[in-house]
Structures are given as C-alpha cells and as structure tokens.
C-alpha cells in the first residue's frame, strides 16, 4: 500500500476529501457573511443559527412532512431566506445608521433565541439524517474510493459560489449591487430601489447559510448546537481571508478545510484549533488578512 509520511494513501485522501467538504461549508458561509457585510456593513452573528436552521428544517421536513432531501434542498434555503427578510424588515433596518456593534449584538441575541428555542424543543442531542439514495455509495477513482455524497457537497458548493460570483461580477443585477455597495444614496437617486436590494441581499446571504445547512444535514448529527461552533470558526476564516473578495472567501474557506483535514491525519490533537492558530499567525504577519483591502 502506498504511504505518504507513514500515512496510507486512502486514509490521507479520505481526510482530504472530508476537509474539502468542511471547507465547502466554510466557503459558502463566509461568502454569505461577505455578501451581507458588503451591502449592509454588518456582521451577521446569526449566520451560524441560519446554518443550523437549514439542517434542522431538512430533518423536520423529513420527520414531519415526509419531504425528502431534494425537496428540502429547494424549499429550506427559501424559508431561511424568508425568515432573514422578516428579521431585516422588522429589526435590522432600524440599526443601519448606528454603530456597527449594535447590529452585531442584535444578531447575537437573535442567534441565542434561535439556538435556545430549538434546544428547548428538540434537546441538544444530534439527530441522524440519511444520505439520499441517489448519492449513497462511492466512486472508484483507482487510488481511492470517493463517497458520492462528499463529491456532491463539494461540487454543489463550488457551483453555488461560482454562481454568486457570476451574478455579482457579470450581470446587471450585480452591477446594481456593486453600485449600491459603493454609494447607496447615489444609486438610489438613479431610481434603483436600494432598500429592497438590501433586504434581498440579506435574504440571499442567510439563504446561502440555510443551503449549507441542507448540504450538511447528512454529513453530521443535526443538532441545535451545530451553528454556534461553526460561526466562530467561520469568523476566524473571515479574519484570515478578509471580506473584500468573493474568490478570496472561497479559496480561504476551501484551503482551511483542507489544512484542517490534513491536521486530522498528522496531528489529530491540534485539529480543533488549527484554524484559530492560523488566524493568530495571519494576524501577526499580515494583519490586513490574505485578501484584505486594509483593516
């Protein structure tokens, strides 16, 4: 059997693809944070809670309505986005003129309410969700077996990121979005309904988090607590990569997932902290972040 640094190749590749799966979640979540930050200039602390809602709604759709994975993939991100839009209209929009920290604290409070509420309803134990039939099994790549579901998560996440990039950089709607990010007042004075764009942007951002939750449901135990650990990790990803560039978010997310996966192989004790350690090093050596445009 081929070994690399004393680790059998299949197990190395296994951790590598698992790392890419986690990296895909980091990428989609940090992308959503970056899109929201660009337009609303707030840090969405309830992003993790929205990710958790995505996974939990997927489980609930199966448990209570018998709706399978593919229906959940369509409906759950939309419902999370709808919740986000309601939050934006009712609460967030009243804070745009204030210091950024109020929106951070509000979304933190909302995250606590969502997490606590679902913990009250469902308890803290994880709920299993099985991989849809179409995606069970593995592909034989010769040097390794690649589980189909992992391939699907990585592929779907990258497609979503690419789609988002295309939308923002290459379409007319994206031009509106970039214009409104740069100079919201003037953009509105050209006849573009900026407040509605802000609302939809927030909905889209948290919808992405919900989508990541759907993708994550079969890979992990679905639990009300899965969001808060994730959001802190994604914050570290965002500090490392900066929020100025879409491709930067995606590359940083995937890269850190891979590094985390490799750490699990070579030095498992450090796998929980490696992303934070990298963040500390980046803060030390390159305070603006890898893709940052200044602090």
């Amino acid at each position: 059997m081929i070994e690399i640094f004393g680790v059998p190749l299949p197990s190395l590749m296994g951790q590598l693809t698992l790392g890419l799966v986690n990296g895909s979640f980091y990428a989609v979540l940090s992308l959503g944070l970056a899109v929201i930050f660009g337009m609303l200039h707030i840090i969405n602390f309830c992003h993790g809670a929205c990710y958790m809602l995505g996974a939990l709604f997927t489980w609930m759709a199966m448990e209570y309505f018998g709706l399978g994975y593919w229906w959940a993939l369509l409906l759950v991100p939309l419902s999370v986005a709808a919740i986000g839009i309601v939050l934006e209209r009712l609460l967030l929009q009243r804070l745009y003129k204030l210091d950024y920290l109020y929106a951070l604290l509000l979304t933190f409070g909302i995250a606590l309410m969502i997490e606590g509420g679902f913990r009250y309803l469902f308890g803290a134990t994880g709920k299993p969700y099985s991989i849809p039939d179409e995606l069970t099994g593995a592909l034989d790549l010769g040097f390794m077996f690649l589980p189909k579901y992992r391939a699907w998560v990585i592929g779907a996440s990258l497609t979503v990121c690419l789609f988002t990039w295309y939308m923002i950089e290459k379409t007319r709607l994206g031009a509106y979005l970039r214009a409104a990010t740069e100079n919201p007042k003037l953009t509105q004075a050209f006849g573009i309904n900026v407040p509605v764009m802000v609302m939809l942007t927030y909905g889209f951002g948290v919808g992405l988090a919900g989508l990541a939750g759907v993708l994550a449901a079969p890979t992990t135990q679905v639990s009300p607590l899965m969001g808060s650990n994730m959001i802190i990790l994604v914050f570290a990803v965002v500090v490392i990569g900066g929020m100025g560039s879409i491709l930067g978010s995606v590359i940083t997310g995937l890269g850190l997932g891979v590094v985390e996966g490799l750490t699990k192989v070579f030095y498992p004790e450090a796998s929980a902290v490696i992303v934070f350690v990298i963040m500390a090093i980046v803060l030390w050596l390159r305070p603006a972040g890898l893709f940052g445009k200044g602090a």
Binding site: K185, Q188, A189, F190, G191, I192, N193, V194, P195
Partner: peptide, 8 residues
Amino acid sequence: LAPHKIAQ
C-alpha cells in the same frame, strides 16, 4: 418620496 421614486 424616497429618492428612487423621485428619479422615476
């Protein structure tokens, strides 16, 4: 009116 309505 809001700015975008004025522009319109």
